[in-house]
Design a protein around this nucleic acid. Structure first.
Lengths: 344, 344
DNA sequence: CTGTTAGCGCTTTCAG
DNA sequence: CTGAAAGCGCTAACAG
């Protein structure tokens, strides 16, 4: 309250000890709740701690005998995308349970930034890493990170790296949505997707093709457009499809951006094309055309990743981290159908 | 490549030194790029570093004479909300420029979790903090954090705490939107908002009232509903407004959730009520009623906060962090108008 | 140019 | 129950 103004640098244990007239060891014991300190001294220490506003220095503590730092690095490709934001939230939520803090960084899909982040996190001695990879292989991760730090890969399977991973059922979701379109009678179905090099995109394309094949429909490359990166590109790709002499009656989109772009195109063309797409989005139920959405829970993706990682962190029981073989979790998808309410 | 398997714990500088047959100081100098090391030894050190897969231990480094840790704590109320996610992204983006890492945590609006996080971040010796406060005052922050760590408050002005802050032009935005409604001829305007205890909500209410007053319209409490926390609650509140004997012809909503809830209510009622709301949202332009949106850039909010914080971090020029008086930045809003395309 | 000494803040170990 | 000594991994500050 009155007293000395807060010192520029944080008070140390030594200062607490000298104020309480005990050794630093006694302070240490009081702070870590270790029994075996006389009530008198304990109280003196507690008073001194309060008076000085002392806070433990976690860094110094974890320096002592290579203890855990209690931090996890999270590296994500597109934090601006709500799906990755939710993923991060799921991770944070689950890890907070285990008293772990997350350091998050965004790579924007840039492999160089990913490498930097891996290196930086390693130097900061994170206890583990959760990675949405930017590139198509991750062989360098092992060198960058070292074998002692567990890594969990999210959204695509690790290539050239032994690590746990959490995936979305890309194939199954795309297959189900396409099958639904077929069941509704569609035969000419367009496809709007990412470049084939992207794992999720190619899996979803596989699912799309498989469903067509099962229905005896020959895939038609004229109906396929890939690689549109943003909404505007998706819109013009969809516009192209609609302008074909025999335009598709439905379009399957591998992601949110494509679905919304397609919707704009359909709207502008005044068409009644049915849309199907991966990733749920708000207001999907109020559009003016029928919409089929492949939904999944990105928070869940994050929670699962966090759990896999937590399993590998050394704990009292498993001091070394027993050699669990790499695990793979696939998060399921749900199919949602929205039909416009024409009474309105 | 062949050689010993990676040791369970990371190699230390000492091991590098002994492999390179130099002192640890020489290793240190090579690693920090300090000139004044003979080419021979430098190369020997570099070889040893590579062979051992040595990575600097940043923690140990920053322990040395209270150096900066290069980390910033970010505490946010609702990371699941895309707006806060974008805020976090803006912060991360800007801070990455200064070689600072962010540790993010979500409080879900819970003051206790906020306190925990403040304490934990302080113990981890973050260089600074960015806080979206959960409660209505922040007097305890100073105790929890200590004077040496700069804090920037976002989205509401700090109460009981001297700190920089970044705000949205809540009053101005709400005023402009309401004035626009009035200019379009609306006289009976509903209001859907947060509880008055929330700063942003009460500011937006002030703006709303001011615009009405200027137009000579007496505010009518019957048209005001506050405190609906989610979309469903917003929808039923809006439904109540629409069921009044003289229903409003337009409704101003202080946030996204309220706007979407109101839209659903309006749609269900088959009404033509105009909507105005804070926070832009995707597909606002394809709704079936006229919509006025108060938009602002949440990334920018984050970037500004990060900049304010970076200014206060001790740097080569400003070792102590000169006493800049608390600053306040207000991020402007833009008014967007969408009119349904009735040709469709 | 290079190495030795000391110590950041804390905790483990071992004597009192 | 308590403290002194030693050291975690690293780097300033001096010697040589």
């Amino acid at each position: 309250m009155a007293g000395t103004p807060p010192s520029p640098s944080a008070p140390t244990m030594k200062e607490v000890a000298s104020l309480a007239e005990v050794s630093t060891m006694t302070v240490s014991r009081v702070l870590s709740g270790h029994a075996g300190v006389s009530a008198v001294k304990r109280e003196r220490v507690e008073a001194a701690v309060k008076e000085l506003g002392y806070r433990t220095n976690t860094l110094a503590r974890s320096l002592r005998h290579g203890a855990r730092t209690g931090t996890v690095g999270v590296i994500v490709t597109h934090l601006g995308n709500p799906f990755y934001a939710r993923l991060a939230l799921g991770i944070e939520e689950m890890l907070a349970t285990e008293n772990l803090r997350v350091m998050i960084t965004n790579t924007d899909g840039d492999v160089a930034r990913e490498r930097d982040a891996l290196q930086d996190f390693t130097e900061r001695r994170v206890d583990g890493l959760i990675l949405v990879p930017a590139g198509s292989h991750q062989a360098y991760v092992a060198d960058e990170v070292g074998a002692s730090t567990p890594v969990v890969v999210v959204a695509r399977p690790p290539v050239g790296l032994e690590a746990d991973c959490v995936l979305v059922d890309d194939f199954g979701g795309a297959h189900a949505a396409t099958a639904r379109l077929v069941a509704e009678g569609h035969r000419r179905i367009g496809f709007l997707g990412t470049p084939p090099s992207v794992y999720t995109g190619s899996e979803r394309y596989r699912g799309f093709c498989a469903a067509l094949e099962e229905a005896g429909i020959a895939p038609d490359e004229d109906y396929v457009r890939r690689g549109q990166e943003d909404l505007a590109a998706a819109e013009s790709a969809a516009t192209e499809l609609l302008a074909l002499s025999r335009p598709p009656t439905a379009v399957f989109c591998t992601n949110n951006r494509n679905t919304l772009g397609a919707y704009r195109a359909v709207r502008r063309a005044g068409a009644r094309t049915t849309l199907a797409g991966f990733d749920n989005f708000e207001l999907a139920d109020v559009l003016s055309v029928p919409v089929v959405v492949v939904a999944y829970d990105p928070d869940e993706l994050g929670r699962q990743a966090a759990r896999l990682l937590a399993d590998r962190l050394p704990s009292p029981e498993r001091p070394g981290g027993t050699a669990i073989p790499p695990r793979r979790i696939v998060v399921p998808t749900t199919l949602l159908s929205y039909v416009p309410d024409d009474t309105y």
